[in-house]
């Protein structure tokens, strides 16, 4: 007993003070990207050519970056001869509409909160059923980590439940494999109305690396309507937490 208490003291308090406190992310963290097109050589398409999923397009002095496809992999950054591409440490990436995933300037239109009635229902208590539909277990792991003492998701009234019938919505990861489509549809139907759907990670948004495979369906919204898109491969736990809190109007 003494040893248990002694260990408890040594382990200290570890919960981050998010959203109020300072966020610390490693120097090499790849968050919101940017292209300084002023530096782009004429007709250079090296970034577009290097991108594994054709998420980046540069057209003269304009660029378009599809964060729903982006794996935040640094292949483009490395291919750029002019060092015009950079990833900031801005982890806030969640949006409500798919078209808002297209970044074409310095900022992104971050997720708006739910409507009044939905917010009244879910702001202080949101129960989610997680469905992995072809996810590689990275998104799943970094969603799961939100329930640890570090992020302590439950202090925001958000939690994961075992049954879709106890849930207010689904949190989907993976490109939706053909073999999981029916299970996903059934799970969605089992959630009582009104319900929410959150797509986490490049796969769940666009199919990710598995886009256009015959065995997958290019993301959650090919099967069910999606209310919140959280980009990343996988998204940092803070990106997911930020998205959830924005959706509930708590940020």
């Amino acid at each position: 007993m003494f040893k248990v208490l002694w260990t408890r003291l040594q382990q200290k308090r570890r919960t981050v003070s998010f959203p109020k406190g300072k966020v610390s992310l490693p120097e090499r963290f790849r968050g919101l990207p940017h292209i300084d097109t002023a530096r782009c050589p004429d007709h250079c398409q090296e970034c577009a050519k290097a991108c594994p999923l054709d998420a980046v397009r540069v057209d003269g002095k304009k660029f378009q970056w599809d964060l729903g496809k982006c794996l935040f992999c640094a292949d483009c950054m490395e291919a750029c001869p002019a060092h015009a591409i950079s990833y900031s440490r801005d982890y806030r990436l969640a949006v409500r509409k798919k078209e808002n995933l297209i970044l074409d300037g310095p900022t992104l239109e971050l997720a708006q909160s739910l409507g009044k009635e939905m917010k009244r229902l879910f702001k202080r208590s949101l129960r989610l059923r997680q469905v992995s539909a072809g996810g590689c277990n990275a998104c799943e792991a970094d969603v799961n980590v939100l329930t640890t003492v570090v992020f302590d998701l439950a202090r925001f009234g958000i939690d994961f439940v075992a049954s879709p019938r106890h849930a207010d919505g689904l949190l989907i990861t993976g490109p939706v494999t053909d073999n999981m489509k029916l299970a996903l549809e059934k799970t969605y139907q089992a959630v009582p109305h009104p319900k929410l759907v959150i797509a986490v990670g490049a796969c769940a948004i666009s199919g990710g690396p598995y886009r256009d495979h015959a065995e997958t369906h290019n993301g959650a919204d090919s099967v069910v309507p999606v209310d919140l898109y959280i980009p990343g491969c996988p998204p940092h736990p803070l990106t997911t937490l930020d998205g959830l809190l924005r959706l509930l109007g708590r940020l």
Partner: peptide, 13 residues
């Protein structure tokens, strides 16, 4: 350019 990303996500952990 896509092959390596299959490898990184074969089993994400």
């Amino acid at each position: 350019k896509r092959v390596f990303h299959y490898m990184e996500t074969l089993a994400g952990d």
